[in-house]
Write a protein that binds this DNA or RNA. Structure first.
Lengths: 113, 113
DNA sequence: CCTTATTAGTTACTATTTGTAATCAAGTAT
DNA sequence: ATACTTGATTACAAATAGTAACTAATAAGG
């Protein structure tokens, strides 16, 4: 395979990798409004429990979100943005603005392809 | 599977889907500087020819980029941003700024997981 | 003419990631 | 004990991405 020569800033590249993971941006977007529970996120964006579980762990490891357990009945687990996670709000607002300016067809949510 | 109830704006969702496709944001970022050729993009970001070919087709269909053929020797094919594609610059600049504020470890480009 | 070189892809095959549906663990109520 | 709820995990199937070899078009060299 062709080697990578034209250097990309590795920090920018990592940021893009985080945001390019499927569902991650939508999960953060949900939490911008308020902290959210596992099931709420699942219902809101339609992600599978398996992948959501994986994403939440990654995002916690990246320091984007924090996980709080309330031993109520049944248990309540609340995910919320850290300062680092909240600082992505401008990115998501720009995407929001761009989509309202440039995306028309609301016929299918079947993605890009 | 749990149904999607909490409605997301379908235009925002589509925008996120476009930008969440692996490599798409990096390809646009490359073209922000100047039009780019197939091999240049490949070298710069390290994407496989197969996937780059697919992404460029999708991005052209989405109206983000245009493809120009110059029958020189050997053939030169130049990809450049449309107005729609260029209008994503603020999103990418925000990601750039965020990464310089919040991403530290430049040790591994091995992504998020 | 035949071989080589260059760019822009495509193809067959493998590996990784995601989706699906069933299941599990903890806690409580019936 | 059984059932219910939330937050997950698991096994298996489907979709997506990576790898390396190959093709098409054009031209230069011998």
């Amino acid at each position: 395979m062709r080697q990578k020569q034209g250097e990309m800033c590795p920090r920018f590249e990592k940021a893009v990798n985080i945001l390019s993971q499927r569902w991650t941006a939508l999960v953060i977007y949900q939490m911008l409004e308020s902290p959210k529970r596992f099931g709420e996120i699942q219902s809101a964006i339609g992600v599978s429990g398996k992948v959501l579980s994986d994403r939440l762990k990654n995002m916690e490891q990246e320091g984007l979100i924090k996980r709080d357990v309330y031993p109520e009945t049944p248990v309540v687990i609340e995910y919320s943005l850290t300062e680092k996670g909240e600082s992505l709000e401008p990115v998501l607002r720009d995407i929001e603005n761009w989509s309202s300016d440039w995306i028309e067809h609301p016929d299918s949510k079947e993605a890009v392809k």
